[in-house]
C-alpha cells in the first residue's frame, strides 16, 4: 500500500478526505466560532460560519464565573496522577500475565478482564457508598483510585500484556543467567523496551481521565474541587439556562491543550501502537 501515488490519485484522495472531514471538523469549528459570538447570535439560523460580531470577553468571563484555573489544575493533576499510576500498575500486571508462570494466572486474568465489561453506571451507587464510608466524598481520591486500580486500568493492562507477549524471550533468559531477579528484569530490560506501548497507554488513560463526567458529578460537590467537564455545565444564567458562548469558550479551552498534545505526540503514539502488535 505504500507505493507512490500518481498525481491524479493524490488529488482524488485529498478531495475524498476533505469531504469526509466536514462532519468531524464542523462541530468543532462551530464551538470555536460560537465561543466569541454574543449569545443572541449563537442560535441564529442558518448558523454563521464566521461570527457577525465578536465578543472576546467570554474568555475572561469563564474565569470570573468559576474558579476555572483551579478546576483546570484539578483536571490536569488528576489526569497526570492517573496516567502515571495506571502506567505502573498496568505494566506490572501486564508483564506478569504475559511472562511469568504462576498458578491460576489465566483464571485471574479472566477475572481482571471483567473490569472491561462493566459500565460505570452499574457500580456508581455502591462505589459512592464505599467512598462515603472511607470519608472520601468531595475529595479527588475516587477519581484517582478507581481509574488506577479499578475497571479503567484493565484496558491498559490488556495492551501491556499483548505487548510483552510479543517480546522475544532471549533477552530475559540472558539476564536470568546473569542472576537478575524478576523485578530487575522487569525494570531494567522489559520496561525500557515497552516505551511505545506505555506511550499508547498514557494517551488513552489521560484522555479517559480528562473526559470523565459521571464520576466527578457524583463524587464532588464544591466548585473548588470540580474537574473541567463538570465545570462546563456550570455556566448558566439565573434560571439554569446555559450561557452558551461562555460555556463554549470554556469547552474550547478544555479541548485545545489536549489537541496540541496529540499533534505533538501523534507520531510516537501511532508508532507505539504499531509496535504493540495488539493481538487477540
Amino acid at each position: 500500500m505504500k507505493t507512490d501515488l500518481s498525481p491524479r490519485m493524490k488529488v482524488a484522495l485529498y478531495g475524498l478526505m476533505c469531504v469526509l472531514l466536514i462532519p468531524f471538523v464542523f462541530p468543532t469549528w462551530w464551538m470555536l466560532t460560537s465561543s466569541v459570538k454574543p449569545i443572541s447570535d449563537i442560535f441564529a439560523f442558518p448558523p454563521d460560519l464566521w461570527p457577525r460580531r465578536f465578543d472576546f470577553t467570554t474568555y475572561a468571563r469563564v474565569f470570573e464565573l468559576q474558579p476555572f484555573a483551579r478546576q483546570y489544575w484539578n483536571s490536569a493533576y488528576i489526569a497526570a496522577l492517573v496516567t502515571i499510576g495506571t502506567m505502573i500498575v498496568s505494566s506490572m500486571a501486564g508483564y506478569a500475565f504475559a511472562r511469568i508462570k504462576f498458578p491460576f494466572s489465566n483464571a485471574i486474568f479472566m477475572i481482571v478482564l471483567l473490569g472491561l465489561l462493566i459500565p460505570s453506571e452499574v457500580t456508581i451507587v455502591p462505589l459512592f457508598q464505599m467512598f462515603l464510608k472511607w470519608g472520601m466524598i468531595n475529595t479527588h481520591w475516587p477519581l484517582i483510585l478507581v481509574p488506577i486500580f479499578g475497571a479503567p486500568s484493565v484496558f491498559a493492562t490488556f495492551v501491556m500484556r499483548q505487548f510483552f507477549i510479543a517480546l522475544p524471550g532471549e533477552l530475559e533468559e540472558a539476564a536470568r543467567v546473569d542472576g537478575l531477579g524478576r523485578f530487575k528484569i522487569f525494570w531494567l530490560i522489559a520496561l525500557p523496551l515497552a516505551k511505545p506501548a506505555l506511550g499508547a497507554v498514557a494517551i488513552f488513560t489521560f484522555l479517559h481521565s480528562w473526559n470523565l463526567y459521571l464520576e466527578p458529578i457524583v463524587f464532588l460537590s464544591s466548585t473548588q474541587m470540580f474537574t473541567l467537564p463538570q465545570a462546563l455545565t456550570q455556566f448558566t444564567d439565573a434560571y439554569g439556562g446555559a450561557m452558551w458562548n461562555i460555556q463554549l469558550a470554556a469547552a474550547t479551552m478544555t479541548a485545545i491543550p489536549v489537541l496540541l498534545v496529540f499533534i505533538v505526540a501523534q507520531k510516537q503514539f501511532v508508532e507505539g501502537l504499531a509496535h504493540t502488535g495488539l493481538k487477540g
Partner: peptide
C-alpha cells in the same frame, strides 16, 4: 451554610445518588 450548585439537567439524579449513598 455552603451552597452546592448541581447541573440542572442531572439535578434530581445527583441528589438521589447522594441520598442513596447515605450522604
Amino acid at each position: 451554610v455552603s451552597f452546592e450548585p448541581l447541573p440542572f439537567d442531572s439535578y434530581t439524579t445527583t441528589l438521589t445518588t447522594q441520598i442513596a449513598g447515605g450522604n
